[in-house]
Nucleic acid binder design. Structure first.
Lengths: 343, 343
DNA sequence: CGCGACTGTGGCAATGATGCCATAGTGGTA
DNA sequence: TACCACTATGGCATCATTGCCACAGTCGCG
C-alpha cells in the first residue's frame, strides 16, 4: 500500500525485470504463467497501478479516447455517455468527455489542443459535432481514428453508426395516416442537426406516398427544446384549419405540444394526437405518455466505441429503430360529419 | 504546424533555454516581457501545445480533477457537470468525469486506481458518493484534496457545498400548510442519499410546528425515480382518507404523482396539490408545471470547484434555495363542508 | 563601496513506463 | 549435427516536461 509504487518496485518484489512487468501489464503473449502469477501478486501486494502519464510518454498509445459533444439534451447525452463508458470500461480504456461549442470559431483549435494534450487514441463524435467542419479537419490533420454517431454528411469520411431517421419519420407519419389523420403538423429539429432534415424528409415522403400535399403552414421551425415546441404548437393551433395530429421531431418538443394542449383544455389524444421522437425517459413521464420512435441511443454509443476499437477499416452500422405506441395517439376528432380536406 | 513540436523545438526557435519556455508555460513570475513575447510567438509558429503526460510525470500537479458520481438523474448530473466544467475551464483545468457504482464492493479500489492512473490533483464528489465510506477512505489515503457536494455525514472531514435540505422541505411544507392543507403525503427519496433524511425531517418539523401529528400512512418510500412516485401515489390514493397534497422529494417522483392523477382523472391542482423538489427542467415541462424547491445545482458544482482550487482550508458553503411557485398547488378540495381532520 | 535581495536565465537530473535489440534455452527438421 | 523458429526474459535509451540548484546582473541602502 505504498502511496506510489512504480513498476520498478513491482519488478524488484517479483524478482523479474522491469520489462517483464510491462509485458504482464500489456498482456504481451510471451510471458510464462508462473512469471505472470508472481508479477500479479507483487502488483496486488504493492497496490500498484500504472501511471497513464508515463505510459503515454513512453509508448504510442494512451488507452484513452475522447467523446466530443455539444448536445443540450441531458437525457440523450446521459445515454450516449453510458453507452461509451460501458464499452470503454470493458476494454480497459479511459473515456474523456469533452463538451465543445460548435458555434465557437475556435472550436477546431480547441479540439486540436485537447487531443494533443491528452494524447487520446481516438474520438467519438456525437451530433452536431459530427458535422462541424473545423472539428473534422482538426481530427483528420491529427490523424487519429474517430467514429461519428448519426452524422449527416460526408458518410465516406469515417466509420459511423446511425439509425434511419428518414425511414423512422416515415414510419411514424404513416402510422398517423393509417389511423386516419390527414392534417399532420410537423415540428422541425434544430437546423444544425442533420437528423432534422432527414426526419422532415421522411415526414414528407410518407405524405407524398398517399397523395397528401405538403402544407407549408403545417411545418414549423424548432430547436429540439420544450420552448420551441410550445411556440410551434401555438402557431399551429391558431390556424383556421388546425392539424389533428402533431409530430414533433423529439420528445422535448412533444412535451411542449402537450403543455399547450393542456393549457387550452384540448383533450389528448381525443382531440389532438401528439407524437415525439427519441423515446427518452421524458416520453414516459409526461401525460399522456408519448407515442414515439425509439432511437437506440445507448447502443449507438457502444457500437461507436466498438468500431473505434475494431479493425480500423471504415465501416457503417445502421441500428434499428422501433415505433413505441403509448397513449398520445387516437383517430382524428370529428364533431359529426367526416370531412377530410387536404392542403 | 509540426505534428508534434516539443518544448525543445520552441526553445531553439525562440533562442532561449528549455527551462525558460517552461516558465512561460507556467506563468512563472520571473520572465521578462521580451523573452515571453519571443517564446509566445515561437509557440504560435510551431502550433505547440504541451503534453500533459510529460507535465504530470515531471511535475507535481497534473492540472486535472475528477468528478466522481453515481447519480441516475440525467438532469441533475448534467447541471453538475456543467457547473464543474465551467469553473475548470476558466481555471485551465481538465475535468475527468468518473461514474462509479457505490454499491460495488470494489468501488474504493476502483477510485484509488483511477486517481493513481490519472494523477488528478483533486476530486469533487457528488451525492451519494459523498457518503460512500470506501471512496472516502481511498481518497484520504491518497491524500488528495476533495470537496463534497451535499454530503450527509462527516461534515468536518472536507470542504463541502450544500443547501439546507431540511429548511427547504420545511419551507415547502409550511407553504402547503399556509394554503390550507392538513393531510400532506410525503414521498421519501432514495435511502442512500442523505438528503432524503433531511428532507423528511424538514417535512416533519413543519408539521410539528403547527401541531399536526405525523401520520405514518402519509409517508412513502421512494427512490428518486418516476416509478417509485407512481407507486407511492397509488398507495396514498387508496387510503380511506387520502392526502389533499403530495410532497415528493424530487421532481421525477412528482411527475409520477401527476401521471397517476391524470390516469385517475383527478384534476390538479383543484383536487390534489403536488409539489416536487430540485427544479430540474422536468418541473417546467410536465403538466401542470410543478411548484418545487429550486436547488442551485449548477452553482453548487461550480462552488465546489472553487473551493477545490482555493486555499485548501476546510470550508463549508451553504447556498440558498428558493421556493418556485407554479401551477400545481391550490387550496385543499372541499366538497361542501370544511372538515379538517388530523392523524 | 560593499552587501544582500531580487530579477532573469540556464543546466541537469528525475519522473514511470515502453520500444527496440539482445540473449538464452528448447524443440523440430533437413 | 547444424540450423532455424519460437518462447521467455533482460537491459538500456527514450519520451516531454518540471524541480532544484547555480549563476549573472541590477538596484537600493547603510
Amino acid at each position: 500500500m505504498n502511496p506510489r509504487a512504480n513498476i520498478r518496485d513491482v519488478a524488484k518484489l517479483a524478482g523479474v525485470a522491469v520489462k517483464t512487468v510491462s509485458r504482464v501489464l500489456n498482456n504481451h503473449p510471451y510471458v510464462s504463467d508462473t512469471t505472470k502469477a508472481k508479477v500479479d501478486s507483487a502488483m496486488a501486494e504493492l497496490g500498484f497501478s500504472p501511471s497513464i502519464a508515463a505510459r503515454i510518454l513512453a509508448g504510442t498509445k494512451s488507452g484513452q479516447i475522447a467523446l466530443i459533444y455539444d448536445n443540450h439534451s441531458p437525457y440523450y447525452m446521459h445515454q450516449i455517455m453510458q453507452g461509451c463508458w460501458d464499452r470503454c470500461h470493458e476494454e480497459g480504456m479511459r473515456l474523456i468527455a469533452q463538451p465543445v461549442d460548435v458555434a465557437d470559431p475556435q472550436v477546431g483549435e480547441q479540439v486540436r489542443g485537447m487531443v494533443r494534450q491528452t494524447h487520446v487514441d481516438g474520438a467519438i463524435l456525437s451530433s452536431p459535432v459530427t458535422d462541424c467542419v473545423p472539428v473534422l479537419h482538426a481530427l483528420e490533420a491529427l490523424n487519429i481514428p474517430f467514429v461519428r454517431i448519426s452524422p449527416g454528411t460526408n458518410h465516406a469520411l469515417t466509420s459511423s453508426v446511425f439509425m434511419d431517421d428518414m425511414q423512422a419519420a416515415d414510419d411514424m407519419t404513416t402510422h398517423l395516416i393509417n389511423i386516419g389523420h390527414r392534417r399532420i403538423g410537423f415540428i422541425k429539429g434544430h437546423h444544425n442537426h442533420m437528423a432534422s432534415t432527414e426526419r422532415q424528409a421522411g415526414y414528407e415522403r410518407a405524405l407524398g406516398r398517399v397523395g397528401i400535399c405538403v402544407d407549408a403552414a403545417l411545418i414549423a421551425e424548432g430547436r429540439f427544446d420544450f420552448e420551441s415546441g410550445v411556440a410551434a404548437t401555438e402557431q399551429f393551433l391558431s390556424l383556421a384549419n388546425p392539424p389533428t395530429a402533431i409530430f414533433a421531431s423529439n420528445d422535448d418538443m412533444a412535451s411542449g405540444v402537450l403543455a399547450v394542449a393542456h393549457r387550452r383544455g384540448i383533450p389528448i389524444p381525443q382531440q389532438l394526437s401528439v407524437v415525439g421522437f427519441d423515446d427518452t425517459t421524458l416520453a414516459r413521464v409526461v401525460w399522456p405518455p408519448l407515442t414515439t420512435v425509439r432511437q437506440p441511443v445507448r447502443d449507438l454509443a457502444s457500437t461507436a466505441a466498438d468500431l473505434l476499437f475494431g479493425e480500423g477499416g471504415i465501416e457503417h452500422r445502421r441500428l434499428p429503430h422501433e415505433l413505441i405506441s403509448r397513449e398520445s395517439v387516437a383517430p382524428p376528432y370529428s364533431p359529426s360529419s367526416k370531412k377530410s380536406k387536404n392542403a
